[in-house]
Nucleic acid binder design. Structure first.
Lengths: 112, 112
DNA sequence: CAGCACTTCTACGGCTTGTAGAAAGTTGCT
DNA sequence: AGCAACTTTCTACAAGCCGTAGAAGTGCTG
């Protein structure tokens, strides 16, 4: 249920790539598109409501940070997809059959 | 881009689980909800437009079949999710770290 | 050709997303 | 205190997707 629109994803990407929490203005400046700050604020508020962003309301330009890392979030998405089928393993088997040899090697390494 | 609504998913599930292609009426009957046939036809047409369903127009009740198996489709979804990040392997590493031991074993087996 | 079964067309209401102006709130300066 | 600049909230709208289905069209069968 945490699927993202295009702009939402761009904003999340900035937050994921930033060490520090960002203000709406900073997000706005760093976006490629030239958008009104209110647009960015709306998106940030929606992301907050979705539970993907945490907002520090103490400081005056509020600062926003991603709740989960990009990897964590993406793993959640993978599990969501896998949750739509009755047989996860069947899907994983097929998935593994579809990856490149080098990626398969990486997976073997990870699995120890 | 092949994300599905709730009803769309129910219909796809029927098609995936059926050996034979199904007519709109058959789909309609097999659905839990009690919907008008036209509703089902609309959904089938939309699924066809999305490229998920193939329609045989030759026979008179048209017959509908899934283009890809459920596993194939789900693998596509996984790849779509993985395509949103710059580092697939980082996500896969974390994913593997999150699965059960028995599933990890299955993955090792599959990877040979 | 008449009637039935099936399909297409059209439509509407609700929800999500991108977009932003108008209005309200906050803070710091004088 | 009062103003100016900055920031946030509220409200809104258009487009697109999805569930839903009636009305109208098409084609087979007796």
């Amino acid at each position: 249920m945490a699927s993202l629109g295009e702009l939402e994803r761009s904003v999340m990407t900035l937050l994921w790539e930033s060490e520090q929490p960002l203000s709406a203005n900073e997000v706005c400046e760093q976006l490629d598109e030239d958008l009104a700050v209110t647009t960015v604020l709306t998106v940030l508020a929606r992301l907050e409501k979705k539970g993907m962003v945490l907002r520090a309301r103490s400081s005056r330009p509020h600062r926003y940070a991603a709740v989960a890392s990009r990897e964590e979030h993406t793993v959640e998405m993978l599990n969501e997809v896998l949750g739509t089928v009755p047989d996860r393993e069947a899907v994983l088997a097929r998935f593994i059959g579809s990856v490149s040899e080098s990626e398969a090697a990486a997976l073997r390494r990870i699995l120890g």
